[in-house]
Design a protein around this nucleic acid. Structure first.
Lengths: 347, 347
DNA sequence: GTGAAAGCGCTAACAT
DNA sequence: ATGTTAGCGCTTTCAC
């Protein structure tokens, strides 16, 4: 069934050591034997056995990515970046995704198992010291994306700045009551976005107004956005503008508005966060974070660390960018139907 | 660094065989030794080494999924189904995704390498006899999703029926000129959808009118839909209704319409295919295929086949479902802005 | 330049 | 119920 180096060795009349040398590009093989071995090998259709190779080499050729709830364009984009980077270096990618945030630790455990992968990318998973200990016990290089901890490399976007940009934009556009739609419990990125938002409001002498969805299992979802917006509408006291802490809730907000016969920006301006695909389509103003780039850079870092484990942990922060589309056009300039919806080619 | 069964054996004063038995739940271990071994094991923080285990057991505990271009909600949903099913059985998922359709074969080769995975799920990859031979040479159980070949299990949606449903719906809704937006080259699913579409048109005595995008690298994309729709608009001879062969192009179509000051269904009705997330949001009428379910069912089949390799190849076809949303509301209820087009022939 | 042999960490007969 | 031992397929000293 499986051709082994023994088969090749026998046919080529050399030892298995020589066959191994040939496949590992050792210089200590004569050209003639090399040719002979290679000939036999692909006559037989030999492919090395990944497990055996891994066991002997003490490395798997695999890296893992642990992702909470895969249902999500943000992770999808990050994952693309990861996949591309990993694949470019000839490694394989093992994907662990949890169904619920609570499952993350069990997925982590599996990903950390010895012999599964050589390193791990951990997405959007807050790392406290307890979890950090668990991770370090795995003795694998680990890189964090959309989360940070001093003991590990991390790749994040400046969420505080993003929150500030969003709020500042709405304030500058002339909106008076600028509210925030966040989630509860509040993960670190949401907290940071809120901080930026609050700073912008304080700067202009206003009072923050925060709504938080406690939707289960996941506050960052369209359903959650829909529900909260519905409640706000029902409350009868609509703010002028809303900053949704993620693009995942924003479509829900828009739907709720639509169902109530309202729209953005006519009745309320809206700015999201992330700039996932649907944002372009929904003409949603938003704060862009370079998802693909972050994934790619994080994976590259992990791969470097695989070669050089002693690299010092580095925190790299990307700058978010305000993308103004239709849902927050300045009240003054808003000729409500103007189509400035370009095709965005992306990184 | 790594705790092995030898360490445990030494500390618990038993042989490695006994330790192994404990971890494999063998009944032939006394309760007292079992307890002792387990005690030592988790005092030492033992975790079995996946590679060594796999090598000895001749199985990896991993299945792979090969996916062309991950940038796509369709695959994302299917992948979720796969991930959930695989995870539920305690296996891990290796994801191979190509950047371009041309890379698929090299990814296949890697996924097929001995010792990488115990089985493979192949998505949206047409399998001809050449490829079938390559796949069979890997001696792994393989299950196809969104593609079919007699030698393998396959999970597909009835694309012909889907195409028929879409066209029939538009015709029944009173639209006269019903065109199709497809891709070129035309993969099997697109061809089947066209077949259904053409049958519906013939049944009602009309002439099919087909537009095909040759957008690179991938015709099933928003950009492709945008471009083709722009050309159709530029042609100045708009059909009454358009059936887009996938939801990935449909948003592009809608954007092109919007940019031209047109809209659906007022100026042209639109029906897509897939029912991905954005379809709900775009209020796009579409043909739903059960993506999550297909992925889950396919993975379940693969896992069954892992236990029972002799299962006969089975082709399971799911029924598509017409989902009527705003973009194809019956013409009677959606007064057109201007009846500027007579009844003329095709592109 | 090539071969012999000792692992890598575990499983699974085969003993006892 | 437990121990001994031979692999699994490959890499890698260490000799020659």
């Amino acid at each position: 069934m499986g051709v082994t180096i023994y088969d090749i060795a026998a046919q080529a009349d050399v030892s298995i050591a020589t066959v191994s040398r040939v496949f590992n590009g050792s210089p200590r093989v004569s050209e003639s034997t090399r040719a002979r071995v290679e000939g036999v090998a692909d006559a037989l259709g030999y492919r090395p056995h990944a497990l055996a190779q891994g066991l002997a080499r003490k490395s798997t050729g695999v890296v893992s990515a642990v992702i909470p709830v895969l249902t999500n364009d943000f992770y999808m984009e990050v994952l693309r970046g990861i996949q591309d980077a990993v694949c470019a270096r000839g490694l394989d990618l093992l994907v662990y995704s949890a169904l619920m945030p609570e499952e993350v630790d069990s997925q982590l455990g599996r990903a950390l198992q010895r012999g599964r992968a050589d390193g791990m990318l951990l997405l959007s998973t807050p790392v406290d010291d307890v979890r950090a200990a668990q991770l370090e016990a795995g003795h694998q290089p680990i890189v964090l994306v959309d989360a940070a901890h001093p003991a590990f490399d991390s790749f994040t976007v400046d969420n505080v700045e993003g929150g500030y940009l969003a709020a500042r934009h709405l304030i500058d556009a002339g909106y008076q009551r600028v509210a925030l739609l966040s989630v509860s419990p509040e993960p670190p990125p949401a907290r940071e976005r809120r901080e930026g938002y609050e700073r912008a409001l304080r700067e202009s002498g206003r009072t923050p107004e925060v709504y938080a969805s406690a939707h289960r299992p996941y506050g960052f979802s369209e359903e959650a956005g829909y529900e909260v917006m519905q409640e706000i509408i029902a409350g009868g006291n609509l703010p002028d503008a809303l900053f949704a802490a993620s693009d995942l809730q924003a479509p829900g907000v828009l739907s709720a508005l639509q169902d109530a016969g309202l729209s953005a920006p006519a009745d309320i301006a809206l700015v999201g966060f992330d700039d996932v695909r649907v944002a372009t389509f929904a003409r949603l103003s938003t704060i862009r974070q370079p998802m693909y780039t972050m994934g790619h850079a994080a994976a590259d870092r992990l791969l470097d660390r695989l070669d050089t484990p002693s690299l010092p942990p580095t925190a790299r922060q990307f700058q978010p960018k305000l993308v103004i589309r239709a849902t927050s056009e300045c009240a003054a300039f808003a000729p409500k139907s103007s189509p400035q919806h370009g095709k965005t080619a992306l990184a």
